[in-house]
Every structure is written in structure tokens, then in C-alpha cells.
Design a protein around this nucleic acid. Structure first.
Length: 593
RNA sequence: GGUCCCGUGGAGCAGUCAGGAGUGCUCGCCGCCCUGUCAAGGCGGAGGUCGCGGGUUCAAAUCCCGUCGGGACCGCCA
């Protein structure tokens, strides 16, 4: 045994105890005749004093982050020398012996909680970064989250099942990571984008309740909340309705937030339909921490001579607005800045009217184009008052215009300080559409192609694919989708009709996921599930800006791992052996995808 | 694929707009001093391809072009 006690657990109750401690030199304060060391281990920090001993001579050689072992007696600190900042501040350990277990080279950065270090440097020496309180705490929090979820699901009779990571491409829609197969040159595994099909087959397999903390892989561009490999808490159950899954999702979320964020979820959580969310917030993951709901003006402005609006209205589209409180006081430059902001996200611009702070009189370039009547009632129509700015979006594509307003709403929330950073606001978004139009005039699944239409549409979704609704549900927290799921199709006939709408031929369906369709033949139970974006959940609980904070060894934006320097080139031998360069003998050998 | 920001001793910054000697700050590092500190203190010292390449100029950290790396966002990611 290297030690008898943990540094951070010592207290006045241990006075006169002889203890052996092992850990790191967090800080040293050398006064010549007496030297203080803050000894840090996993439990915390305690002050070690070196004075008048052989050990004291060696102690002068200590440097930060040396790994050491000391033996000595616990004593109460001299009166007036207590440190109320430290849990162990009442006592100290007077070292009688000191062993240096491992010296530390000069550090690339200070292992010190109050020092700012760039993320790049932190990740390159992540093992040092993780010695710091904040980063360590985030990873420990994630461990607790895993534990909470596993406990709850196990008590509910859920079975943890691992599924393959070397598998076949599944149709989530992202780009696959591919792995060459030495034994079958020209054939490749795909890393799973999610365990979706496997978990459905586990339902066919009669497990009824499955979960897994599953690693998933998608080869797309990265963001603060995206990594090439990420984790889902993946759940599926048989003989469940949407209400059952929503209840389970809420119980898991409630347990996590109760235990890790000291927040009790107001259950049941509010449910918004997907269309409500779009109409009111311009987003399918609305941030409900603040108001500023959108106003639809399509009918109000019908008949306007302003071409930007009439064009959208006449095309059967949408005109709407969002209010920026106090926005009339913005300078011309700031208002122009909104145009650049809108253009940066692909819009033509962001029309606006400002209401004079004293008179409420509407002003601005757009105001000149609107009739007296439209201007007179505008403030009431959008819920604005004198001194506010009103931003408009108009488009033949209703959702496109709403999404622009939704993005503007979030920007307004940020700029006007409307968002309480300590607040939690959860909701479900339900009744999502099944399909959305593709650029080629066809249809694509909004969720995934195994999502069941709801009972209103199950017999007729082909007749109006754009309006058909699904049994799909997302849980949203502060504007983040933290989990999403659906009731699946368990009927081969329905599944095949969905493929028809998606323009997937029978042959293509067989080629891509024939194994699922085959499985559905043999008495597949009704089933559904949900998957939590685990990195995002943990990041929210940790109040972290990026999911990289809750990943032990994350990658940077380019998919680069600063610690291992992966990915790396391979040797010619590896290349030859992997079969990467295999050329199909005939065109028929190449799978057309 | 696109837009914006950043790159200066080991760490974090200032200096760049308005060109004039590698100039400055905080921390760390090395040496010496110091018996009650706790982000200890004092004195002294070392440490630089101003990301890289090219251009303009008498002169470039600074201006221009390109490039690499990092970050944020749009596209993309059901």
C-alpha cells in the first residue's frame, strides 16, 4: 500500500494520526527553514509541512507535479494559520519522510485551476489538463450520468446489449466511415451511425427492452456540438406507445437533472407539435427560456403592394415577424449588420421597421412601402411597442422564412440579454412531418425511413406526403435537441409503402436493409424507442460550452486528435495488406450507390 | 464548399488600425535569499524563425498575396 489515507479526507478528527499519503505536488511555498507543499490526490488537497528533518532537505528539490509519497503526523495548524478556503484547512501533515515516486519535467502549461490555457494546448497534453479540477469534474459528471441512466433502466428491466461497430452502412443519411477488409479485398465495413437497425432486430428477437451507451460515427463536418465519434444513450422497447416512451424519456431526464443539476423537472413536460414549434419559434428545437414568439402576418399583409411580401403571399407562402425589444435605438450600422447576418445564412436580407421611441411611429426603408392601414395596426399585430424594432421574413417556403425568424429570435435573445443562463426549459416536440420535399422533387424522410406514421395517416400518407405526420418525438432543453425517437414501423406492408414514397425500389430496399425487412416478416412486435445525444446531455449538465469538455480525449475540428496526432499515414505494407486499392474486375462488381 | 476571428520566449496577453532596434505586462522556468505560507515573498538570470512562404519598402510582428494550424458560424449532419 502506497498510502494509508486520502489527502482530501483528513480533518481535525485525524489529529495525532500517523499517515502516509501519495499524490502530486500541487504547489510549493519554500520559506528556507520551513517549506509547505500542497499535496493533491484524487480526493483533494492537504498541506504538508517540511521542517528540521532529512525530508526537508529533499523537499527543496521538489517541483510542481512531482509525484511523491510522504509519511508524517497530522496536527492542528497553529492558531491563526487555518485556511478556511480548504476543506482540510484546519490541519496539516508534518512530513517525517519523503519519497519521490516520479519527477515531472518542466510543464507545458501550469496545472492550475485559475490559469487560462488554449484548448489546443490543453488537448495536446490532456493528461495534465485532466489533473485540473474543472476538466476532471466534467468527466466524473459524465460517469455519474452513465450510472444514473444504467441504474434506472436496469431497474425497469432493460437489458444492456452491445451491437457491432464493424457493420454495414445503415441509412441514417450521413456519410459513413469505412473500414477496408483484408480478407475480402474490395469489401468494406461501415462504422455504425447509430445502432438503429440492430435495436429493432433485438425487438424482433424478443428482448422487449434494450439499451446501450453506444458509440456512433458520422463522417461530416464538425461543430462545437459535433465529433466524428459521439455517444448515444440508445433505448428501444416493444409493446410501447408514444406516451410510454415519452414517460421513460422524462424519467431519465428528470433523474439526471435532479441528481446532477439540482433541478426538478416540471412533469409532465409541455408538448409542442412540430408545426406549433415552427409557427411560434421558427425552430423544431425551440429555446423556451424566453418569449419573443413569431407573429404570422400572411393574412394581415394580404393585398400589400410591397413586392417582397406580396410575392411570398401570392405564391402561397408566408410572411412573419419577430420583435426586438428596444431595437429602435440601434444605429444604422447595427441595423445594416442584421442584413449581413441574414445574408450569411443564405437569406436575401431581413426587412425591418423601427417604432419611434416617443411616438411609436413606424420608420425605416420597409415602412415606406407599406400602406397607412398596415402600418397603423402593425404594432398590435406583432405585439411591439414604441422603441422596438420589428424584423420581417417572407418566402414562398413557409418553413424557410420561419427558420430565418427563428434564428433572428435567438440572436435577439442573446443580444438583448433575454436568456437566463441559469434557467432550464424543457419541452417535447411531437407530431413531426414524415417527409420533406427533396430538391429533385421527390420526398425524403425527416426522421428516418422506419418511423411510423401516426394513426391519422397510416392508411393515407401517400395521398399527401407533405402533410403526413409521424409518431416521432424529440425532447428539447434550452434550444438543444437532447433526445429523439419514434414509434417504428413493424409492418412490412407499411414499410414498403414508405419506401415507395421515398422512391426506394424494392431491389434497393433489399440491397440496403433486406435483413431488417426479413426480420419484420417473423412476428415483429410493435416497438419504438429513443436515443439521447449523450455528449450534449453531459455538456448541458456540466454547463460546458462544447461537448469536447465532457469527452476524455476529443478531436479538433478537422477530426484531428492533438494527443495522438491521429489520423496518420499508413505504411505501403499496411496499404497493400488492407486491400484498399483493390480494383473490381468488372463494372458489375462495383456496387452502385 | 463558404464567411468571420485568432496565431508574438513554456502558458496567457498587449503591441498590428497609424511600418522605425524583439518593446511591454501577468504567470511559469533557472540560481540565490528567506521559519507560518496557502495564487507566499525578495533579488538576479535564462528563454524568440512574431505560424510558414512570397511581395511592397531604406526599413515589416505591423501593409499586400498565398499557405498551414486552431476556434465560431452557414452549408452539411434523418
Amino acid at each position: 500500500m502506497y498510502r494509508t489515507h486520502l489527502a482530501g479526507t483528513l480533518s481535525a478528527a485525524d489529529v495525532d494520526q500517523q499517515v502516509t499519503l501519495a499524490g502530486w505536488v500541487a504547489r510549493r511555498r519554500d520559506h528556507g527553514g520551513v517549506e509547505f507543499i500542497d499535496l493533491r490526490d484524487v480526493s483533494g488537497v492537504v498541506q504538508v509541512v517540511f521542517r528540521d528533518s532529512e525530508a526537508a532537505k529533499v523537499a527543496h528539490e521538489l517541483r510542481n507535479e512531482f509525484c511523491i509519497e510522504i509519511t508524517g503526523a497530522v496536527s492542528r495548524r497553529p492558531a491563526g494559520n487555518e485556511n478556511p478556503e480548504l476543506p482540510t484547512g484546519e490541519i496539516e501533515v508534518t512530513a517525517e519522510s519523503l519519497t519521490v515516486l516520479s519527477e515531472a519535467a518542466p510543464l507545458p502549461f501550469q496545472v492550475d485551476d485559475h490559469i487560462d490555457v488554449s484548448e489546443d494546448v490543453r488537448l495536446r497534453h490532456r493528461y495534465l489538463d485532466l489533473r485540473r479540477t474543472g476538466p476532471a469534474k466534467a468527466i466524473r459528471l459524465r460517469s455519474k450520468a452513465n450510472h444514473i441512466a444504467r441504474n434506472l433502466l436496469a431497474e425497469d428491466g432493460y437489458v444492456e446489449v452491445e451491437t457491432p461497430t464493424l457493420t454495414r452502412s445503415t441509412p441514417e443519411g450521413a456519410r459513413d466511415f469505412l473500414v477496408p477488409v483484408r480478407l475480402q479485398p474490395g469489401n468494406w465495413y461501415a462504422l455504425p451511425q447509430s445502432p438503429q437497425l440492430f435495436k429493432q432486430l433485438l425487438m424482433v428477437g424478443g428482448f422487449e427492452k434494450y439499451y446501450q451507451i453506444a458509440r456512433c460515427y458520422r463522417d461530416e463536418d464538425f461543430r462545437a456540438d459535433r465529433q466524428p465519434e459521439f455517444t448515444q444513450l440508445d433505448i428501444e422497447a416493444s409493446f410501447v406507445t408514444q406516451e410510454d416512451v415519452i414517460d421513460l424519456g422524462e424519467r431519465i431526464t428528470a433523474a439526471l437533472w435532479s441528481e446532477l443539476a439540482d433541478y426538478e423537472l416540471p412533469r409532465p413536460l409541455p408538448q409542442l407539435t412540430w408545426h406549433d414549434a415552427m409557427d411560434r419559434y421558427g425552430s423544431d428545437k425551440p429555446d423556451l427560456r424566453f418569449g419573443q414568439e413569431l407573429s404570422e402576418l400572411t393574412d394581415y399583409l394580404r393585398g400589400t403592394s410591397f413586392r417582397v411580401f406580396s410575392g411570398a403571399i401570392d405564391a402561397g407562402g408566408y410572411v412573419g415577424a419577430v420583435v426586438m425589444p428596444g431595437g429602435a435605438s440601434q444605429t444604422r450600422k447595427e441595423l445594416d449588420g442584421w442584413q449581413d447576418w441574414a445574408k450569411a445564412r443564405g437569406a436575401k436580407g431581413l426587412a425591418y421597421v423601427v417604432l419611434n421611441a416617443e411616438t411609436g411611429e413606424p420608420k425605416g426603408p420597409v415602412a415606406k412601402n407599406l400602406s397607412e392601414e398596415h402600418l397603423a395596426g402593425l404594432a398590435d399585430a406583432v405585439g411591439a411597442k414604441a422603441g422596438d424594432a420589428v424584423f420581417f421574413a417572407a418566402s414562398p417556403d413557409r418553413h424557410e422564412a420561419q427558420e430565418l425568424l427563428g434564428a433572428a429570435r435567438l440572436e435577439i435573445g442573446r443580444r438583448c440579454g433575454l436568456i437566463d443562463e441559469d434557467a432550464w426549459a424543457f419541452c417535447w416536440v411531437v407530431d413531426a412531418p414524415m417527409f420533406e420535399p427533396t430538391d429533385e422533387g421527390g420526398w425524403t424522410a425527416i426522421h428516418h425511413p422506419f418511423t411510423s406514421p401516426n394513426p391519422d395517416w397510416i392508411d393515407k400518407f401517400e395521398t399527401d406526403p407533405g402533410s403526413a405526420l409521424t409518431y416521432a418525438y424529440d425532447i428539447v432543453c434550452n434550444g438543444n435537441e437532447i433526445a429523439g425517437g419514434s414509434i417504428r414501423i413493424h409492418d412490412r406492408e407499411v414499410q414498403s409503402r414508405v419506401f415507395d414514397v421515398l422512391g426506394i425500389t424494392h431491389e434497393e430496399a433489399q440491397e440496403k436493409f433486406g435483413f431488417l425487412l426479413e426480420g419484420l416478416k417473423y412476428g415483429a412486435p410493435p416497438h419504438g424507442g429513443i436515443a439521447f445525444g449523450w455528449d450534449r446531455v453531459c455538456a448541458l449538465l456540466a454547463k460546458a460550452d462544447s461537448i469536447r469538455e465532457v469527452i476524455a480525449f476529443p478531436k479538433t475540428g478537422g477530426g484531428y486528435d492533438p494527443l495522438t496526432a491521429a489520423p496518420t499515414p499508413i505504411t505501403p505494407e499496411q496499404r497493400a495488406e488492407a486491400g484498399i486499392d483493390h480494383v473490381p474486375e468488372t463494372d458489375e462488381d462495383a456496387v452502385d450507390e
